[in-house]
Design a protein around this nucleic acid. Sequence first.
DNA 1: TTAATTTGCTAAACCGGTTTATAATAATTA
DNA 2: TAATTATTATAAACCGGTTTAGCAAATTAA
Lengths: 338, 338
Amino acid sequence: MKNKLSINDIAKALQVSKTTISFILNGKAEEKRISKDLTERVIKFIKENDFRPNQLAKSLSTGKTFTIGLMVEKISDYFFAQIAYHVEELANKSGYKIIYCSTENDTQKTKELIKLFAERHVDGFIITPPVGIEKEIKDLMQNDIPVVLFDRFFTDFNTSYVVMDNYESTYKAINYLITTKCANIAFIELESDQNQMTERKRGYVNAMNENRLTSNILRIPFSNDKKQTILQITSFLADNIQLDALFFATNYLTMHGIKAIHNRGLKIPHDISIVAFDDHDFFDIYTPSITAVAQPIQEMAQQLINILLNDMSSRKRTIQQKVVPAKLILRDSTTRKI
Amino acid sequence: MKNKLSINDIAKALQVSKTTISFILNGKAEEKRISKDLTERVIKFIKENDFRPNQLAKSLSTGKTFTIGLMVEKISDYFFAQIAYHVEELANKSGYKIIYCSTENDTQKTKELIKLFAERHVDGFIITPPVGIEKEIKDLMQNDIPVVLFDRFFTDFNTSYVVMDNYESTYKAINYLITTKCANIAFIELESDQNQMTERKRGYVNAMNENRLTSNILRIPFSNDKKQTILQITSFLADNIQLDALFFATNYLTMHGIKAIHNRGLKIPHDISIVAFDDHDFFDIYTPSITAVAQPIQEMAQQLINILLNDMSSRKRTIQQKVVPAKLILRDSTTRKI
DNA sequence: TTAATTTGCTAAACCGGTTTATAATAATTA
DNA sequence: TAATTATTATAAACCGGTTTAGCAAATTAA
């Protein structure tokens, strides 16, 4: 590694043009009619001296960096951390490295980060978009840079994406609660108008309507901290003592909701059933264990990488949209009245 | 962004040498005695056309990429995901981006990944080293590349690192358990000889010895899956019915241990107290809440970045070693006999 | 035997910056 | 007035690869 060899050094050492060496390195020896003899001489030298071409120089001339930009809401959140793990593993197999950042769902910050990643010439983007970055995404696409959104997308313009079937999975989960004889089912969500959230809500509302039940929705402000959220849910429970079940639209809300339920002295599932959106290690361990709508994380990661690799390796951009089904994992928190 | 401007284009447009433009761009206008007049003309042009220098070209000639390689055991683990979050946030402020990977604690894989990151010219490394990569670390250091280890380090050779006070924090936690009148305290650990683990064990054994109590250690193989681990702990509990308390050396072991305790029909803290190493959202929410040795994650991230930035910005390499104290967060799982 | 083609290889331009060494002019000094 | 020094700017080399265009020699075809 010390005093690294360059292609020029090799050219000098072997008294050969660096063009020739470049051709051989890139497997174009035959195509460019370099003789077997010379090819072997060069390869031998390269092996003996453990020559590794400078990737920066390569990137500068080819424009490819073999880097993917992964922009998630918050890398430390369970769901995104899992995605990051699988995405990296899969990308690695194809020689790609991942550079990541947390958008914090902040529009301005995200715009800046997209610029920074683009400046670093990432070959493709995986993004969980906050609201208001349609223009920046459009710019990337117009510049022919592959982008695939995930977890959510823009309904008003066409991009590649990988998302869960938020509507269907919530709809089914609510219907399941109803089969367990729950009627007063509340929906606890974050104050967000992004489509992954609105779809979950739509699933809830439709399931309730079709069963002639009344919707009851609690919206938690984004700016809430943990304590505030717990308080808010606690007082919601106090104001709605007739509730049979709660559906939490994210796993962090579930965590806080559990605390609130505990604060109110209620027992799950005896007094109230709960269902979480997004699974978590925690939910399996907790007593009672928590029924959850589980996103197929590994499959989503695979789809993301497939779409991206496909797009990055071809000259033509394509739009690919995958809606993957979730799985309702039944556990103890919904066994009240079966 | 389309058809990006280069410094050459600007030179041509303004009829100025690109040397001049480069100087101005890098704030060397005064030093290089470029006239105010010309400087302003160039700056105006740059602003009007939103010129952004090509980072690849810059990196190629300067050798700096403003990229940090973050190599953790598994990016999706709670602790590492948190570290990743804070490290990125701090790095960002100084213009650095993070490229990450999961080593899976696999020596061979890690060696390969170090090479790949080095090939990409990361400016510095943050590594949770598996065993047996001393040579590779040494190589990096000899090549003058800043490296800082964290979570664990090599006792037999000198590097920068940021770790927790594993010995002291475990020692204190065990002593705390003893003050709550626990005597039969078992230590549940992963089968690992890395120093973060051996130090925790040393803290446990010493605390036990000093109080004339008998150590009781359960080692869980690395290869175990979740189910096997739960079974193993369950049968350990069956074989040791006299136990007062369990100390879990990692937070995943705690999760599985809780399930095992539940399987045995034991109540925390009534029948048995538990303490977890590494805190987790979960532990605060769980009923009963779980006492934990909490690593000061944000502080560790800050130290990591400080050491690295410091080292990357100077010509000279330094060795800096930080042992940060942990905090024992008392919760309900250890209130049995106070 | 000559023209055309194939084989084998390379010079030079290019990607887009940084940096060293130096030139041309203006202003001071002796 | 001539020599010296400051000021302002630049040409060219460099980082380390890729790629285009083309040359010379060997082979084949006419």
